[in-house]
Design a protein around this nucleic acid. Structure first.
Lengths: 246, 246
DNA sequence: CGCTATCTTGAGTAGCGTCAAGTCATGTGG
DNA sequence: CCACATGACTTGACGCTACTCAAGATAGCG
């Protein structure tokens, strides 16, 4: 996805980028920091890293070195079963924090791959730990982000465990829509960065079922879909698919 | 479940209990603490709290006050959909840490209920935050526990998204078995604390399907099931249900 | 000892998966 | 710039898994 316009001029060529002047600051670090604290936090982002479409940010088994904040682009995380079965565990866009699955055992437990050319801020975990001890607001923020990831996972479990195919896809579209809206993009019109196969994997469905659900929404005038371009025509109707009004 | 024998004598009548002399220490606080540090950590557990079977430890919407470590007993967590749909998000036993879903928004996002009379250690979150700043090993431990919860959730997503009914039940039984083993109980013979309905809710299945899967395992001599008593006869066979040998 | 919640089992069905054929985009090389 | 190849997507027909509905058995609790 195209980067949001930056508020302050940022030297794009430089690897080190100041968090204090980052347009994503409010997504990454919404807690209240004083100016002096912000200066220290600027030192947290070691470097930026480009990940081209199809490349991995990290793979399951890689040792934990850093957490990553997405600056631009779009990614997916996959968990793998021993027998080769793979499932998409999440889709990530700018402002999302990645890599927290590795803190527990020191190694990543999932693969994360760019679905389009992306850029991430690399935050060495040891520095993050130290800074979060020195700045309680940063500590709180880290805890919040991890906690929200847990809550997000609960939502996915609910989706996978108790929804029918069309309900799952409606929930997925509404979630995407809401996340785009928060980031200043249109909540009703966007391009999907993932294949039907990947959507299906995330939703616990086969790609044909995803395709049929899209067609059904199209027929009922809820969305306009042409391949990866989606326009939500009737957000209320989509919500009604989720929870039939009662 | 019956509490493990305590290594050091503990005044059961007292509300305050020293972590340093707790038999669950290795589950709760496996990081290396010095004796002087342990003393401070003892002050972390504000009080113990009894939760009788059927009572809630907390409900969705309750403000975050503390995290909880299970000392004895057995619990379930449920997430609720707006429309009333409910799903079991996890089963918890002694040594498990609960309540991390509330850190993100300051309020619990799930219900947690005792499935048998239980006892938990209450750790006020503000104290936990402060101590974890002072003791890096405690900070690391908190991060680890949260990260493991995220990884656990990934496992559940994989289960719900890509396994058939019998595979799900086999994975469930093997997971229970392993957790009992870690705690010093028999990995092959135990009593289920939850109903078929609750197992089904956790696994994304109806209770009848769970019952049929149990019967099928029984027929194939994999387990012996009589209501809530389970004996695993052929652990290898159960694993084979999961991932047909290849 | 009887009531109620829980569990098992059966029969029929709906929803999703599987397999297959065909259309449509994207991108690559001539 | 076009032709072709490849991957992505749609749609149909059919089958199987798990759900629904129902009846009966069993255990736990007062």
């Amino acid at each position: 996805m195209p980067p949001l316009p930056t508020r302050c001029a940022v030297d794009i060529g430089q690897l080190r980028v100041a968090c204090s002047s980052c347009s994503l600051r409010e997504l990454c670090l919404p807690a209240g920091f004083k100016a002096r604290e912000m200066e220290r936090i600027d030192g947290l982002v070691d470097q930026r890293r480009r990940v081209r479409k199809g490349e991995h940010l990290y793979r399951a088994g890689d040792p934990l070195t850093a957490l990553y904040a997405i600056r631009s682009g779009f990614m997916k995380s996959c968990v793998l079963h021993e027998d080769g079965r793979e499932q998409v565990a999440g889709f990530h866009m700018m402002g999302d924090l990645l890599g927290m699955d590795a803190i527990g055992g020191g190694h990543h437990m999932s693969d994360t791959m760019a679905l389009e050319d992306s850029e991430v801020c690399e935050m060495p975990f040891t520095i993050l730990e130290r800074l979060s001890r020195e700045f309680p607001p940063l500590q709180l923020q880290l805890h919040r982000v991890m906690s929200r990831e847990i809550v997000r996972d609960y939502g996915v479990m609910l989706l996978l465990g108790s929804m029918k195919a069309e309900e799952r896809l409606a929930a997925f579209l509404l979630n995407l829509s809401q996340r785009f809206a928060v980031r200043g993009y249109s909540p009703t019109e966007f391009n999907l960065r993932m294949t039907r196969q990947e959507i299906g994997s995330y939703l616990g469905l086969k790609l044909e079922t995803v395709s049929r659900a899209f067609s059904s929404f199209h027929q009922h005038q809820l969305v306009e879909v042409r391949h990866r371009h989606v326009r939500i025509l009737d957000p209320g109707g989509l919500k009604a698919v989720l929870g039939p009004v009662r």
